[in-house]
Amino acid sequence: RALPCPAHVVFRYQAGREDELTITEGEWLEVIEEGDADEWVKARNQHGEVGFVPERYLNFPD
């Protein structure tokens, strides 16, 4: 997929490290980079905060 792209959060995730982003179910993010580890992506939330989130917690519109 082309980046950046929108993504809808389907599961809540609490950041466990400083470089991760806490996300809430129902929130929209902008995915800006593929992650440095499998199944992680770097995203920006509506407040401009950036961090890594688990890709499987997101839904990408067609």
Rank of each mutant, 00 (worst) to 15 (best):
E25S: 15
W28Y: 10
Y13A: 04
F52R: 11
N45Y: 05
Q14D: 13
D36N: 10
D19N: 12
E49Q: 15
T24M: 12
F11C: 13
G16K: 14
G26P: 02
A37K: 15
V41H: 00
A37D: 11
A15Y: 01
E30F: 06
D38Q: 13
A43S: 03
N45S: 03
N45Q: 01
A37G: 11
A7E: 02
Y13E: 00
G48D: 08
L58D: 02
V41F: 07
E33H: 08
P4I: 05
T22E: 04
T24K: 14
F60G: 04
G26N: 08
R56S: 14
K42S: 06
E27H: 01
P61M: 11
V50L: 06
L3H: 08
R1S: 09
V9N: 05
V9Q: 03
G35K: 10
L29G: 00
D36P: 15
E34Q: 12
W28R: 14
P6G: 08
Q14P: 03
E30T: 11
V41S: 02
Y13C: 04
R12N: 14
V10N: 06
E34K: 14
R17Y: 04
F52W: 14
E25C: 06
G51H: 00
D62C: 15
P61C: 15
V53N: 01
P4L: 03
D19S: 14
E34S: 10
D36G: 11
R12P: 10
W40Y: 14
D38Y: 10
G26V: 00
T24A: 10
P6Y: 07
K42L: 09
G26Y: 03
H47V: 13
H47I: 08
P61D: 13
V10R: 10
H47N: 12
G48V: 02
Y57Q: 06
R1H: 08
P61I: 15
E18T: 12
T22M: 03
H47E: 09
N59R: 14
Q46I: 09
Q46N: 12
V9G: 03
G48K: 06
E39I: 10
E33F: 02
P61S: 15
T22G: 06
Y57P: 03
W40K: 11
P54S: 10
Y13S: 06
V53Y: 04
E49H: 12
E20C: 10
V9H: 01
Q14M: 10
E55G: 09
F52H: 08
W28G: 08
E30V: 08
R17E: 12
Q46Y: 10
A2E: 15
I32S: 01
E30H: 08
E30N: 08
E25F: 05
W40F: 09
E55W: 09
D62V: 11
E55R: 14
A43R: 01
V53D: 02
V41P: 00
N45W: 00
A15I: 02
A2Q: 13
P6L: 06
G35A: 11
R17K: 13
Y13F: 11
N59A: 14
V50P: 01
F11H: 14
V31G: 01
L29F: 00
L29C: 01
Q14F: 12
V9W: 01
H47P: 03
G16W: 07
D19Y: 12
L3Q: 05
T24W: 07
D62Y: 09
C5A: 04
K42Q: 10
Y13T: 03
D38G: 13
R56W: 07
Q46S: 12
I32T: 07
G16Q: 13
L29R: 02
E20A: 08
I23H: 00
G48A: 05
W40S: 07
D38R: 14
W40E: 08
F60C: 07
G51Q: 00
E39N: 15
R17L: 05
E30M: 10
P4M: 07
E27S: 00
R44S: 07
A7W: 00
T24I: 11
D62P: 07
R17A: 12
L58N: 00
T24V: 12
N59Q: 13
T24G: 07
A15F: 00
I32K: 00
D36Y: 09
K42E: 04
F52T: 06
V10E: 07
E18H: 04
F52S: 11
G35V: 13
P61T: 15
R56T: 13
R44C: 08
R1G: 07
Y57M: 12
K42W: 08
H47G: 14
A7K: 00
P61L: 13
W28T: 11
Y13W: 09
L58A: 02
G16D: 07
G26R: 03
D62K: 09
A2F: 15
R56I: 07
V9A: 13
L29D: 03
T24C: 09
C5Q: 09
Q46L: 11
E20Y: 04
I32N: 01
V53M: 03
E55K: 12
W40T: 10
E25K: 15
L29V: 15
A43G: 06
P54R: 13
P4R: 04
R56A: 14
E25H: 08
V9I: 01
R17G: 10
N45M: 01
D38C: 11
R56Y: 09
H47K: 14
W40G: 04
L21D: 01
L3R: 06
E27A: 02
P54H: 12
E55I: 14
C5N: 00
R12S: 15
D38L: 13
F60T: 04
A15C: 04
